[in-house]
Deep mutational scan, measured.
Amino acid sequence: MSHKQIYYSDKYDDEEFEYRHVMLPKDIAKLVPKTHLMSESEWRNLGVQQSQGWVHYMIHEPEPHILLFRRPLPKKPKK
């Protein structure tokens, strides 16, 4: 599979999560399941490479070739 064609967005966040999206080329996108969110082993098997802790959290129906990921931000110590 062509890992060079996978595009990784910059990371962005809110108060709770860090987010990123990953755009897959058409040949890989056709392998994305339409019935469920992928486990880490499933998206890694497609060639997506990112650190541990990312969760495929949403399917964007109009653009199924874009995978939406998030992971919890580290808890800030209370002052």
Rank of each mutant, 00 (worst) to 15 (best):
G47Y: 06
P77K: 14
E40Y: 09
R71A: 01
Y19C: 02
K78S: 13
D27V: 07
H65M: 07
G53F: 05
E16N: 14
V32G: 02
L31C: 08
K76S: 11
L37V: 05
S39D: 11
R71K: 11
P74K: 15
I28E: 07
Q5T: 15
H60Q: 07
Y8R: 04
Q52W: 03
Q50D: 03
V22P: 00
V55I: 12
D27Y: 03
P64K: 07
G53I: 02
M1W: 12
L24C: 05
R20F: 02
Y57Q: 02
L46Y: 00
S51Y: 02
N45F: 05
M58Q: 13
P74M: 12
D14T: 07
M38S: 05
K11W: 09
E63R: 06
E16A: 13
L37Q: 00
F17L: 05
G47I: 01
L24T: 02
H3K: 12
V48M: 05
Y7N: 13
H3S: 15
R71W: 04
A29C: 08
L46H: 06
D14C: 00
H60C: 12
L73V: 08
V55C: 09
Y8M: 01
Q49A: 08
E18W: 04
R70P: 06
R44H: 09
E16G: 10
H56L: 04
L37R: 04
F69C: 01
K78H: 14
H3R: 12
K30S: 10
Q5W: 10
H21R: 15
R71D: 05
E40A: 06
R20D: 02
I59A: 08
S39N: 10
S41L: 11
I59R: 12
T35L: 05
K76Q: 10
L73G: 04
E16F: 13
E16Y: 14
E42V: 04
P74Y: 12
R71T: 01
Q52I: 08
Y19Q: 00
R71M: 03
E16L: 12
H21C: 08
L37S: 01
P77C: 13
I28W: 08
Q5Y: 15
Q52S: 15
Q50I: 14
I59M: 12
P25Q: 04
L67P: 05
M58L: 08
R70I: 02
K30R: 10
I6M: 11
M23V: 15
V48K: 01
N45M: 11
M1P: 09
S39I: 06
V32K: 00
H65T: 09
W43H: 03
I66W: 05
E18T: 08
I6A: 11
Y12F: 10
K4H: 08
D14S: 04
Q5E: 13
E61K: 13
H3V: 15
K11F: 10
L73K: 14
P62Y: 13
E18L: 03
L68A: 07
L31H: 11
L31Y: 08
E42M: 07
M23R: 13
Y7A: 11
Y8S: 10
V55W: 02
L73D: 03
D27G: 08
I28R: 07
R70M: 00
N45S: 13
I59V: 11
V22A: 03
L73N: 05
W54F: 03
L68Q: 05
K11Q: 07
I66F: 05
P25C: 05
K4Y: 09
S51L: 05
S41Q: 13
V32D: 01
H65C: 07
K79N: 12
P77E: 13
R71L: 01
E63N: 14
W54C: 05
Y57T: 01
L67M: 03
W54A: 01
P33E: 04
P33L: 02
W43Y: 00
P33R: 04
K4P: 14
L37G: 02
N45D: 09
R70E: 03
L46D: 01
P25L: 04
H60P: 06
I6P: 03
L73R: 11
Q52E: 14
V22Q: 01
E42S: 00
V22K: 01
Q52R: 12
S2W: 15
V22L: 03
E63L: 05
K75I: 10
P74N: 11
P72A: 09
E18K: 02
F17Y: 15
G47C: 02
M38E: 00
W43S: 02
K79V: 14
H56G: 03
Q5N: 13
Q49D: 11
Q5V: 11
E15Y: 13
L67I: 07
K11V: 14
L68F: 14
N45W: 07
K11T: 14
L67Q: 02
I28N: 02
M1T: 13
M23P: 02
H3P: 15
K30L: 07
S51M: 08
E16R: 12
R20E: 02
K79M: 10
P77N: 13
E40F: 06
E63W: 07
S2T: 15
Q50G: 08
M58W: 05
H3G: 15
S9M: 11
D13L: 10
P64C: 05
P74E: 12
I59T: 10
K4E: 14
K78Q: 13
P62L: 13
V32C: 06
E18P: 00
I59E: 05
G53N: 10
W43Q: 06
D27W: 04
L67V: 05
R71H: 00
K11I: 14
K75T: 12
D10M: 07
I6S: 01
L37Y: 02
Y57H: 06
R70V: 02
I6E: 06
P62V: 13
T35G: 14
E15D: 15
E40Q: 05
W54D: 06
Y57M: 04
G53A: 10
E63Y: 07
K78M: 13
V32S: 04
F69K: 06
P25I: 00
I28Q: 08
P64Q: 07
K79D: 14
S2G: 15
S39V: 08
P74H: 11
H3Q: 15
L31Q: 11
K26T: 11
S41M: 13
R44A: 01
H60V: 09
F17E: 03
L24D: 00
R20Y: 06
K76M: 12
K4W: 05
Y7H: 10
T35F: 08
I66D: 07
H21E: 15
P33I: 04
W43L: 05
H65P: 00
I59Y: 14
P72S: 08
R44T: 02
K34W: 04
E16M: 13
K34S: 10
V55G: 01
I28S: 05
I59G: 04
Q49K: 13
K34T: 13
Y7L: 08
L46E: 00
Y57V: 04
L67D: 03
S41D: 13
D10I: 10
P33N: 08
I6F: 11
P72Y: 09
